[in-house]
Simulated scan of single mutants.
Amino acid sequence: MRHSTRRMLAAGAIALTGALALAGCSGGTDDGGSSADAGGGADLTPVKLQLQWLPQGQFAGYFAAADQGFFEEEGLDVEIIPSGGDIVPQDALANGDVDYAIAWVPKVLGSIEAGANLTDIAQIFQRSGTLQVSWADSGIDSIADFEGKKIGSWGFGNEWEIFAAMAAEGLDATTVQIITQDFNMNAFLQGDIDAAQAMTYNEYAQLLETTNPDTGELYTPDDFNVVSYEDTQGAMLQDAIWADTEKLASDTAYQETTVKFLKAVIKGWVYAAENPEEASQITIAAGSAWGPSHELWMVNETNKLIWPSTEGIGVIDEAAWDKTVQGALAAVNETGAHLITEDPPATAYSNEWIQKAHDELADAGLDLTGADFAPMDVTLTEGGQ
């Protein structure tokens, strides 16, 4: 795969601008490849992609697609727009501010019920990466052990797996004390939370790159109990690519752009699977603030959530979708609020566009299912450096 420093620096400028000036990031940069011509000399089609967080390995495939020129090969000039919590991706898409957005399925199901007209066109994460982490001697080995405990959650729609899993166990949300935690593990390490929310690719790594004051060595997995929501009835689909439903139905140019965009994204994620070290460096250059060992861990763990994809990367599994919907219907938070109260419309997801992208890449020699994927063994260092 070729490597373009120019593209990497351009992507980094876009992302870093967003990280430093969150509210004003949608303007992007002026070059971003727009001066280049696609094959045949036509101007590149501008596309805005809204991320749901800051640049990091969770989004490595998108930054790799920019860095490696995959978007340009499809005739696209893609501006990758970060968020830091100030931008709700599905709102930006529903408002017409961007062309596509990355967001968790349950969050968008709530927005769809509230009136947003959006479609999941590619389910990039095939499994949940959410954990609830407690100390090894806490006695919290399963969801059933949450009762009476202080359970950490970030909020912002990230909490619904907790409530869906509790509902499946017959537990009332009022039987736990929900503690709002920052996007780190400080409150847990200080003893303010019995079981903290963590992603396999981020906060769990933060624990493993922290020094245990009792031993002077880094914490190890043996120091913790881990409840993985993927192993519960509360598991929900996470990072998906969302598009404008109405434009998908009526705008031919948007339809064509959607397929081209998905083709480039697929190539970006295949690149990240086959070249995790390079992908981690690309995300660092794109503005990630994480250290190199943490970033490599993040890319590696993100790849595990994507690959293997039995039906092909991005294809939405109907059973997993239905499980997410049922969990969303069952979930009731500590205030008695529901995420959704009825089934989403049939337009909430479609495999039409990702399948077209797969069909057009059929002869490209790419491993679209991850049949040959093998994760790395990543050694974390103190502070993720």
Results as ranks from 00 to 15, higher is better:
K149V: 00
A337W: 00
A164Y: 01
Y201A: 02
K48W: 00
G115A: 09
D141F: 12
L305K: 08
D244K: 09
Q281C: 03
S309Q: 04
K304N: 03
L218I: 09
D77L: 10
T369G: 12
D172P: 06
Q197P: 01
K267V: 06
Q181Y: 13
T119V: 03
F163C: 10
A319E: 09
L131T: 06
P213E: 11
A205F: 06
A374N: 10
T119P: 03
Q238V: 11
W135C: 05
G234W: 02
H338I: 05
I87V: 05
A371K: 15
L131W: 13
I81W: 03
I241N: 06
I151T: 08
L44D: 02
A286T: 06
L93Y: 14
T232I: 07
E169G: 09
M376F: 05
A116G: 05
G115D: 12
I266P: 07
L296S: 02
V325H: 10
G170M: 14
G327S: 07
E203F: 01
K107S: 13
A114T: 04
S4P: 09
H3L: 11
G18N: 08
P106E: 12
G384V: 01
K107R: 14
D182H: 14
D239G: 01
A330S: 08
P46D: 01
M298Y: 00
Q190A: 15
G85A: 09
P221F: 13
A23R: 14
R2Y: 12
W290S: 10
A330W: 10
T335A: 10
G110L: 15
E256S: 04
A205C: 08
I179D: 13
F163W: 11
I112V: 15
A122L: 02
K356W: 01
T258V: 13
T257I: 15
M1S: 12
L51K: 02
Q181S: 11
A65G: 01
E256W: 07
L218Y: 01
S228L: 07
A362K: 15
V88D: 11
S134T: 14
I124N: 09
G96H: 11
N202K: 08
G383W: 05
S293L: 02
M166P: 03
A136R: 11
V270E: 15
Q197N: 04
P308E: 14
G57Q: 04
G170D: 10
S153W: 07
P308F: 04
T174Y: 11
Q123S: 08
A38C: 05
E74V: 10
A285K: 15
